[in-house]
C-alpha cells in the first residue's frame, strides 16, 4: 500500500503537469482530426465494398491506423519524462527521495498511459456510431482496443528508456521514433531470410505481429507473455540508465 502511495504522489504531479500543458491538447486535437477523417473515409468505402464485413472494412484498418499514429505520437508524449527532469536538475531530487527508481519509472509510465487513454477515449465514438448502424461484433472491438493499448504501452516503455538516456527532448523523441520504426521494419527482414526458425523468431520479436492477432479477435497467451516481457525489459533498461548516473 505504502509502495503504491509513493507512486501516487509522483503520478498526481505528473498528470497535473501534463494536463496543464498545451502539448496534450494539441496532440489530442491532431489525433482526433486524423483518425476522424480516416474513420469517415473507411465508412464511405465500406458502402461500396459488398464482400467485406464491417470488421474487415472499418474496425481492422482504423485500429491499424491508431496503432501506427501512436508510433509518431508516443515519442512526443514520452520525450519530456526524464529528459526534462535531467535538464531541470530535478531528477537528482527524485533519486535522493524516498522513491525508488522503479517507483519513479512506474509513475512516469502510468501517467503517460493515462494521457494515451485520454486521447484514445475520443475514439469510443466510433463503436457507438457503428452500433447505431447495427454492428454487434464487440469481441473484436474489445480485443482490438486491448491490442492497441498493449502496443502503445510497449511504445511508452521504449520512450521512457530513450528519454532517460539524454537531457535533450528532441534527441529523446527522435531516438524513440527510430527504435519503434526500426523494430517495425524488422518484419521486412523476415522475408530476406530462408531460415524458417530465424524468420519465426524475428517475427515473434516485433510488436505488429502480436498486435495483428488482437485485431483479428485472437488473444494469444504468448502475445500477452511477449508484451509483459517487452515492458519488463525496457523498465529494467530504464532502471539501469537511471542508476548509471551514479557510476
Amino acid at each position: 500500500m505504502k509502495y503504491l502511495k509513493k507512486i501516487n504522489i509522483l503520478l498526481k504531479k505528473e498528470l497535473k503537469d501534463s494536463f496543464l500543458s498545451p502539448l496534450i491538447y494539441i496532440l489530442t486535437g491532431l489525433f482526433c482530426l486524423m483518425i476522424g477523417w480516416l474513420f469517415f473515409n473507411y465508412l464511405l468505402q465500406a458502402k461500396t465494398l459488398t464482400t467485406a464485413t464491417m470488421t474487415q472494412a472499418v474496425i481492422t484498418p482504423i485500429f491499424g491506423n491508431i496503432n501506427f499514429i501512436f508510433v509518431f505520437l508516443c515519442p512526443l508524449l514520452t520525450m519530456r519524462a526524464f529528459a526534462e527532469e535531467k535538464k531541470q536538475s530535478t531528477l537528482d531530487l527524485l533519486l535522493r527521495s524516498e522513491l525508488t527508481e522503479f517507483q519513479i519509472i512506474f509513475a512516469k509510465f502510468i501517467s503517460n498511459f493515462v494521457l494515451v487513454l485520454f486521447m484514445i477515449s475520443f475514439t469510443l465514438i466510433f463503436p457507438i456510431i457503428l452500433a447505431l448502424s447495427g454492428y454487434s461484433d464487440w469481441g473484436v472491438v474489445g480485443s482490438s482496443y486491448a491490442g492497441v493499448l498493449l502496443s502503445i504501452m510497449a511504445y511508452i516503455a521504449v520512450g521512457l528508456f530513450c528519454s532517460s538516456l539524454t537531457d535533450n527532448q528532441i534527441v529523446a523523441s527522435l531516438l524513440t521514433f527510430c527504435l519503434l520504426l526500426g523494430s517495425m521494419l524488422m518484419v521486412i527482414s523476415v522475408n530476406a531470410t530462408d531460415n524458417y526458425l530465424l524468420a519465426l523468431l524475428i517475427q515473434y520479436l516485433t510488436v505488429p505481429f502480436h498486435y495483428e492477432g488482437f485485431v483479428k479477435g485472437l488473444v494469444r497467451s504468448y502475445s500477452l507473455v511477449y508484451f509483459v516481457s517487452y515492458l519488463l525489459f525496457f523498465f529494467i533498461l530504464t532502471h539501469k540508465s537511471l542508476q548509471s548516473r551514479k557510476w
Partner: peptide, 9 residues
C-alpha cells in the same frame, strides 16, 4: 509540499 511528500511521506 511535493518535496515533503516524496522525502517524508
Amino acid at each position: 509540499k511535493f518535496v515533503l511528500d516524496i522525502y517524508a511521506p
